[in-house]
Design a protein around this nucleic acid. Sequence first.
DNA 1: CTATAATTATGTTTTAGAGCACAAAAGTAG
DNA 2: CTACTTTTGTGCTCTAAAACATAATTATAG
Lengths: 233, 233
Amino acid sequence: MLRREMVLNEISSSIAELWQPLTTEQRSILATEFTIQRFKKNEIIYCEGDKPTHIMCLLSGKVKIYKDGVGGRTQIMRMIKPVEYFAYRAYFANEEYVTAAAAFEPSVICMFPMDTITRLISENNQLAQFFIRQLSIDLGIADERTVSLTQKHIRGRLAEALLFLKENYGVEEDGSTLSIYLSREDLANLSNMTTSNAIRTLSIFANEKLITIDGRKIKLIDEERLKKISKIG
Amino acid sequence: MLRREMVLNEISSSIAELWQPLTTEQRSILATEFTIQRFKKNEIIYCEGDKPTHIMCLLSGKVKIYKDGVGGRTQIMRMIKPVEYFAYRAYFANEEYVTAAAAFEPSVICMFPMDTITRLISENNQLAQFFIRQLSIDLGIADERTVSLTQKHIRGRLAEALLFLKENYGVEEDGSTLSIYLSREDLANLSNMTTSNAIRTLSIFANEKLITIDGRKIKLIDEERLKKISKIG
DNA sequence: CTATAATTATGTTTTAGAGCACAAAAGTAG
DNA sequence: CTACTTTTGTGCTCTAAAACATAATTATAG
């Protein structure tokens, strides 16, 4: 089937890390078992408390992993870009999801059953090591993030978020407009502040000529100064 | 050597999870390579920025994993009890330590070279899966913690910390006095608040008959209400 | 095209928690 | 024992950020 071929081709070329260690036989196992799912803008992919069954690979679009906390507040924990894997942690920990996932934009996701993945892991040590490495990296990021979110001031957190968005999703052809168009609310949820503070601080940054804003288009003007603001908190 | 025998015996009996998957041969490899190190109260075990070389297993004592952030503030990220493994994440991620570790109390730590561990992992899939599971569990905890620390109010965070300490290190024979005696500063660093707020809130809790305090001895009196305070934030 | 809802913007008020000051108590060292 | 440092306790002040209020703008739906 052509469609499946194309997807597999895309995966194998883009995300060597997981695919590469596999033997031909193992690849063909996965090839028969994956499913493709499309999600609309803002559509929920999985919820906190759901039972994990599939590892997901984002083929196109943008996805947020978030957590609803106390008092109606939401924290965006991570953001996924093509072609990254997600949604596997809970299965490995033998837990239900502690986070939820939703699509920022129309997204296409490829899903592999986790029981197959674990079988492949037990046969293929390289694959196991891929997950060890990935989880280790993510845990380090989580630790850094905890301290940033709890200790930095609003300006520092917002500056950090803007720099992260550039780092993660890149910029348009002009070289400075962030490629992701977030609502102020999402930006607030990413940087642990209220929506009004995200709006206000963004305006202040614009006044200080650190950025320019045109609706949801954000252009980073003075990245050096943003880095400084992010660093000192 | 008797000493080494004893340590290995302790490890193999207490922490089956890592030791159990190993073959006799693999066990004997580790047996020849480990070293034992003692740390005094408050002694630093490793620092942020250090290069990781050994996985550590806490044989006795209590250890904090912490991170110094902006403006001289410190966040305690996790706490280790016997017989748990730690200090391996950075090596797997091919990074330097992003946290530091110190002993709360006189502690004895057994160290295995990480290069040996990775060799054993590549030979032994069960061992790989142990780390996948452990890292997955820790990442889930980190996510939960981020939201607690950023969204809950002081009372909620302190209540959560107290309940965690009971959960993690247990209580004395009376069934309610926490077995760990923390300074107010450590308690503050654990629950993301200033020392004076930890002291103050602890006093308030005592006035509300949720706990009793006698120096560093903390007795949990009304655990149900503490849980409620922790939950609602 | 119009009505309705959602998002963005800005100003004002309120408050949780940091910051500071100082004293008492408890450790620690000489 | 005495001197000195660290930790604990309490009160007071100040401020960063939340909460609230109200427009203005922009989407979205019927």
